[in-house]
Design a protein around this nucleic acid. Structure first.
Lengths: 362, 362
DNA sequence: AAAGTGCTTGTGAGCGCTAACAATTGACGC
DNA sequence: GCGTCAATTGTTAGCGCTCACAAGCACTTT
């Protein structure tokens, strides 16, 4: 009587229509080898006919794999994280995974724990954490990880797999570029000191100056925002020997440009300014900004590649490699401790535009 | 013998420890009223003790609710969509939902169908689609929707619930602002014509000019990028009677500013420029940009609120309201056709900065 | 005293799928 | 003819949870 309610077909419906058992349907769906060609065709026809789609929940229940990857991101309204997220999402989807995302506005250990808990409830198969602050990377390393984790822009020393752009190298490229133009030294507006990216960029800058025997001025520090760059720019505008500034990101560089402009300091005639990130806007700043381009999408793709590797390696050893090769020690998870966690580095690239030039009289 | 394998506790384990049946554990977890206080406490203690966490997959299998909302977004590297996404994600998580995301680089009907298919496999409970192009909104309306859908920046006329910013109003605010400053007319650099946002902004502009009896110049059209704005700016720089431009987004406005600067046209002394979006950078453009601020996060929150409403309304009528109130017609889903789909509008706000001013001689 | 009431708890079935095992078939060799 | 083998298919038992229902109990009501 109440049978006319439209409910989506299940495996048994397909099986009935194809004249086989539900298990055979399952075999066809999972590409099992031992199914006769003709049977397979009949099953596929039935699937097509009914518009059947496998219930992934039921499948997840028995296989204990959700086919979902979790992503913990931080301030996805910024260009860099947003681009990375896009790369991650794309790569994961291409690999047949769903992507569940948690974005944090604040990057505290508490919020991170909450985010991991949230994703844990969903039984994600693996996790990508964008962990640009050293404290976060450490906190993450200390949390129990029931699933493989890959960090992005994280700390390579905490023992988790990591994919990042060589920030230090970026700082080197910028500083060498400016020194080569003839500047005696280069000032620096850094990002927040607890950010690994800020640290790396500053290191590259400092070491290049040191290697060149150039004077090293105390860096100014901003919070990545144009406003903080503006404030630093106002300070820099008062420095008599200022000829070149390396600003740790493009947004702050915009603020610096604005402050210099207000102080009637011309760029690049009086002062050269170089940024970092190559956001789409920077080519149209006044003047167009010399900066460092990072392939964020590539970072996202690499992160997923690493995670998929870890996922594949996780299944395999059980009962085969592991038991055969480690006869006594059954406690330790993952590859042997002799193998360090993978660390993938993406190279940055200097993009020279009009904001950098030779200093006066050279 | 092989019982020492560490597996996470299940409901039965909790039940055993608490000395109750698994069903009572379930009741405690689901806040069922009829559980004795003392029993509840014992169960909670057992849960705590074992570190038990409910298996959401098993729960989803029987309740047929995945507790996951799907989001289809477009170009999340842009500030607007990224902010909206953040608002959506936050609101959904606060409501206890997981968020599964698919971001499209291209906004074709095919990619959209693929995205919906992807999310459908995951059995999402509801869907938020950021559908800024008219064609997409139409395509979406024509696709079968097994779950409630809310569109963001979509077409209110296609019959789906929609949340958007009053773009037309934004165009009106800008144009009125410029006319009030004394400009005889306002030029327009619009976004891509198939974008609803571009259409709305242009409409507001055109109608305000018409109402004021001002001359209406053929608008130029860009693709939202700074580069396209730059090209339009070069054309505008050649217009003899140019005193004011309304550019449909801040990124293009940046390009326009650059082109005008190169043509030695001063802003705002010679020409006023107004943008749209209020991206964080715009306050530090040269000069700081007058623009329209949109509360993207609010849009995201409203979208989720609408979706949750729809979700709540979906369960309820079964067997109660529906059957009681519609005795004969059991085919049509949702509320009666007399109720139009909800349409939530968020108001934009004019932010006056230095790029707009009085024209020469007024 | 029998029946009814409301609260609390337990029992059994089953969501849709996969994994392990069992059963069937035909081919082959002796 | 019979055993052996591989290929193919079916049968059964869960995965961990919720739902419907029943059962037990202390009180009331007639």
């Amino acid at each position: 009587m109440a049978r006319n309610v439209q409910r989506s077909p299940v495996m048994a419906d397909v099986a009935r229509l194809a004249g086989v058992s539900h298990q055979t349907v399952s075999r066809v769906l999972n590409d099992h080898p031992n199914v006769r060609q003709e049977t397979r065709a009949r099953v596929l026809a039935a699937i097509e006919g009914l518009g059947y789609r496998r219930n992934s929940t039921a499948r997840a229940l028995v296989t204990k794999q959700s086919n979902t990857l979790g992503v913990v991101a931080f301030d996805t309204t910024l260009y860099g994280p947003a681009s990375t997220l896009y790369g991650i999402e794309r790569a994961a989807r291409d690999a047949g995974y769903f992507v569940s995302i948690v974005s944090l506005r604040e990057l505290t250990s508490h919020d991170l724990a909450e985010a991991l808990d949230h994703l844990g409830r969903q039984q994600v198969d693996g996790l990508v954490v964008i962990a640009p602050q050293s404290a976060v990377a450490v906190a993450l390393a200390e949390m129990p990880q029931p699933v493989p984790v890959v960090t992005v822009e994280g700390d390579a020393d905490v023992g988790l797999p990591v994919v990042n752009v060589d920030q230090r190298k970026g700082g080197v490229l910028v500083t060498e570029h400016l020194l080569r133009l003839g500047h005696r030294t280069v000032w620096h507006v850094s990002g927040p000191q607890d950010w690994l990216e800020a640290q790396g960029r500053m290191e590259g800058w400092r070491e290049t100056l040191r290697a060149a025997g150039a004077e090293i001025h105390e860096p100014l520090s901003g919070d990545w925002s144009p406003r903080s760059g503006y404030r630093c720019g106002q300070i820099l505008a008062g420095m008599p020997d200022l000829t070149a500034v390396f600003v740790a990101n493009d947004q702050m560089a915009l603020g610096v440009l604005r402050a210099l402009d207000e102080a009637r300091i011309r760029v690049p005639e009086d002062v050269s300014v170089v940024g970092f990130d190559d956001i789409p806007e920077s080519e149209f700043f006044a003047p167009p900004l010399t900066t460092i381009s990072q392939d964020f999408s590539e970072v996202g793709r690499k992160a997923i590649a690493l995670l998929l590797d870890a996922l594949a390696g996780e299944d395999e050893p059980v009962g085969t490699l592991r038991q055969a090769m480690e006869p006594s020690d059954g406690v330790r998870e993952g590859p042997s401790p002799a193998t360090p966690p993978p660390h993938v580095v993406v190279q940055p690239r200097l993009v020279v535009r009009r904001s950098s030039g030779r200093p006066h009289g050279s």
